[in-house]
Design a protein around this nucleic acid. Structure first.
Lengths: 216, 216
DNA sequence: ACCTGAACACCGTTCAAGT
DNA sequence: ACCTGAACACCGTTCAAGT
């Protein structure tokens, strides 16, 4: 797919991304997009074969923008940087995850974090299938957490609001009631915490030969 | 919401779930569901106020079916059981995650794993906000991994197929090429591995007083 | 209490026609 | 090479009407 920033192609794409960022993915409609561009709906089909093509172009554009790599000598710092970047994109563009998931074939740029992570993990003594597994762990956590955050400020999914609405009462969820102190809940902290727990586990992994773990 | 298994209500719901399991969430249409039930589309509106209500009822039905709790004395085993159960549902009903995410307000049963996890973590010496963060880590990993698996057998998202298609060639992703040995990739193993890495990190957490960690 | 059919405001997309 | 308008097959849902 060629990239030409001066083409009408790019202007359409930019409009589409703006619309999605502002009003959500479900608001993106060929007809509404055409209207925003002051053009007939069918005019869009000169630039994109169909809506699928449009979505794919949007995802590609998003993925290419990201710079995952930094050249810190410590592998831990490189992983931190990579997944902080990933999280930042999702937070900046709430629809990005659903956009990627909808694609049959992901944009190439998606493999960048994987490559960087494998390299970093190699230095930590984690290789082969285990390295891939750690990558999946990191990605799923990061994307899951960010999706959750972006879905809305605890849009009904947090125990705090459920409790105050009395929905959790009656002692059926006693441990939630007891632990609840959500005043200072912070997604940034939760993310950093999660990553640190994972990396702590990974560090131990590097110290244990995988043959020893398998035979348990 | 009352549950009456003999009502037409329940038969509609069952049909809808079957349709979604077989043909995917996007295939669920008021009109198609009505057709499958040999009834006029508008007949459905006697049982559900609208499509949203139908989706919510489906999610609730799914969530209630799950038994997350076991009474093993070891907190680790209880967490394993809980999240293996969660993963099993998602694998059995591929649309379940999207179904839950679409809801404004989640079914109550969703808080079951949280309650169980908080209890287990308490025994591990992890409490307060940290316990919530560990729960999010576990959930996001489990759901993310299962969603990914269920989305299709590596539906374009795996480096292996991208490599064989030559899309990753040219040395731009050298660490992927070098580590690739996907012949024996196994989602079950990857899941168990991820959970064990997390729990390893959590065990260390329980041994370190949180005040010491904060001041780093 | 339950079901129906016609109608409305939306979709994505095809197709023939224009410049 | 680009744009248009009418049309088609789909949506979810409202509404007046039937039993």
């Amino acid at each position: 797919v060629r990239v030409c920033l001066h083409s009408r192609f790019a202007r359409v794409l930019q409009r589409a991304l703006a619309l999605v960022d502002r009003e959500g993915l479900d608001s993106l409609t060929m007809r509404r997009l055409a209207q925003a561009l002051k053009v007939s709906p069918m005019a869009l089909y000169n630039h994109f074969a169909g809506k699928d093509e449009l979505l794919r172009a949007m995802a590609e554009h998003l993925a290419q923008q990201i710079d995952f790599s930094c050249d810190h000598p410590d592998w831990r710092e490189r992983i931190w940087y990579c997944f902080r970047s990933l999280r930042a994109v999702v937070r900046a563009h709430p629809a990005s995850v659903r956009l990627m998931e909808a694609l049959e074939e992901p944009p190439l740029a998606i493999f960048r974090p994987l490559d960087l992570t494998l390299q970093a993990l190699g230095e930590a003594g984690v290789t082969g299938d285990d390295a891939f597994r750690v990558y999946f762990l990191l990605t799923n956590f990061t994307l899951g957490q960010a999706s959750y955050e972006v879905r809305g400020p605890f849009k009904g999914m947090d125990p705090a609001s459920a409790l105050t609405q009395g929905r959790l009462g009656g002692g059926a969820f006693e441990h939630i009631e007891r632990s609840l102190a959500f005043d200072d809940w912070d997604f940034d902290e939760a993310f950093e915490f999660g990553l640190s727990v994972i990396l702590r586990g990974v560090e131990q992994l590097g110290r244990t030969p995988s043959s020893a773990r398998r035979s348990k």
